[in-house]
Computed example of a mutant assay.
Amino acid sequence: MESTTGRKQRLSQTVQHIKPSGIRRFFDMASTMEDVISLGVGEPDFVTPWNVREASILSMERGYTAYTANAGMLELRKEIARYLEDRFDTPYNPESEIVVTVGASEAIDIAVRAIVDPGEEVIVVEPSFVSYAPIVSLAGGVPVSVQTKKENGFKLTPAELKEAITPKTKAVIVCFPNNPTGTILEESELLELSAVIKEHDLMVISDEIYAELSYDTKHYSFPKIEGMKDRTILISGFSKAFAMTGWRVGYVCAPEDISAAMLKIHQYTMMCASTLAQFGALEALRDGQDDVKRMVISYRQRRNYMIEAFKEIGLDCHVPGGAFYLFPSIQNTGLNSEEFAEQLLKEEQVAVVPGSVFGEGGEGYVRCSYATSMDSLKTAVSRIERFLSKRKAAQ
């Protein structure tokens, strides 16, 4: 394709049509301002536990600075397999069904590219993490959004899933506990969805990066359901539960043929995850559960505080069962989600993320992360209350 000047277009049409991350835009805006309380970026406020940092430093001091196996250190893959079976009753073969990746984000990318051909459709359950639909488009697939509803607790229903399926549908991407809504899926709900998935011969890419952060019920996973392990690509990692966001180490689990396909893509694009990060992840799995439990207790306390605080200041919000986000409605303010987020940031120095960046169904909501200190949360609530009072007085 040539431009009007006669020169060929420099950029891919696909890339040109993909919007930059709305999350990062508000984070970048906040970073230029003083006295900002950020409820925006989904990142634990805890520092990676010392024993994990020490294990990584020690590995470097001992000279472990070369590439690992493309799929990751076998020792780490064995530990991931043990962890998944012990914690979530989902067994995987560490030699052929697990690939260690550069964060869960790469895992999602290679999962989509391994199974999707150009023109095939992938159902994206929204509101959803901002990367799913762009990743499908970059793979040549066609993202098909399904908007969940607040009256259903933002949970995907079998009827909504069925309605979105066409002869071109290849897979469905789900995230639970969900980013941005905090919604969880219980065993009975997974069973109902699995029946539809099996009936229509689909794959499911299940992003379970927040699995440890389930507060009111034990996390249940698709691979536990009869007939679903062979249809599931399980995505997870260390960023959220283990407070290791900057380490960029995740993993993807799938049947052997799909794992082999993902490994080929990983070999050509990444070679392997960071050796130092893998040693840290190994230590996190071996001796990190006590730290995870302490963090989960703190998140639960913050969640409970924020739910009650938002209720008192007039923000309607469903109770999230997991992750570390609230997704309150701001429809009674008369502002759309972009306007609300921008004005709140400029007037009260509180950063939230407009719900519209998570899909059309997110309009009218904002995402607020409670992965920050209780003192900061209390100050943020006070500022949001003041902001709401001014809007109410002006109406």
Rank of each mutant, 00 (worst) to 15 (best):
T372N: 04
L58R: 15
E308H: 11
I330H: 07
H219K: 01
V15C: 11
Y220G: 04
M306A: 14
K390D: 11
A81G: 14
R10K: 14
V146I: 03
Y268V: 07
W50K: 04
R25M: 07
T333Y: 05
A393Y: 06
D230S: 04
K293W: 01
E347S: 10
A243T: 15
M270Q: 04
A241W: 06
G72A: 14
Q331L: 04
R82L: 13
Y210T: 11
I233K: 11
L285V: 00
N70P: 10
T148C: 01
L74D: 03
R386L: 06
G246M: 13
C368K: 01
T32K: 14
I233V: 04
I108M: 00
V172P: 09
Y325T: 10
V350G: 00
S376L: 10
N178Q: 01
A284C: 00
A104W: 02
A284M: 10
L276F: 03
F242C: 00
K150C: 03
R82V: 00
A351E: 12
L315K: 04
G362N: 12
R24L: 08
L388C: 04
E226K: 10
I209M: 04
A309C: 13
L185W: 05
Q349W: 04
N332V: 02
D45H: 12
D216C: 06
I184W: 01
K293Y: 02
E348Y: 01
S356K: 03
R303W: 10
T5M: 01
V136A: 04
P49I: 00
I57N: 12
K229F: 15
V47M: 03
Y268E: 09
P158M: 07
R231K: 05
R87Y: 12
E163N: 01
D257G: 05
G40N: 08
V357A: 05
V15G: 02
V102L: 15
N152H: 13
L263K: 13
V249S: 15
K8L: 13
R82F: 05
S59E: 09
Y325D: 08
L76N: 03
L263S: 11
I297V: 08
D109M: 15
I233E: 14
F129S: 10
M33T: 11
E363W: 09
K78H: 02
P143G: 10
I18T: 09
T269P: 06
V252E: 11
K198G: 10
Y370Q: 14
A351R: 08
T217S: 03
G6T: 00
A69T: 07
Q267G: 11
A104Q: 06
A277M: 09
Q278D: 12
E163K: 11
Y365A: 05
R391F: 07
A341L: 00
N51M: 04
S236M: 00
D290L: 07
K346L: 15
G359T: 06
A241D: 06
I225V: 14
M244I: 15
P91H: 15
E189W: 00
I57F: 08
Y67S: 13
R24I: 13
T166F: 01
L185Q: 10
E226Q: 09
L156R: 03
L282V: 09
V172T: 02
F129H: 06
S337K: 09
Y220P: 00
V172M: 12
V350Q: 02
C317W: 05
V125H: 09
F324Y: 09
T372Y: 09
L344R: 09
A107W: 14
G140I: 10
Q16S: 02
V52K: 03
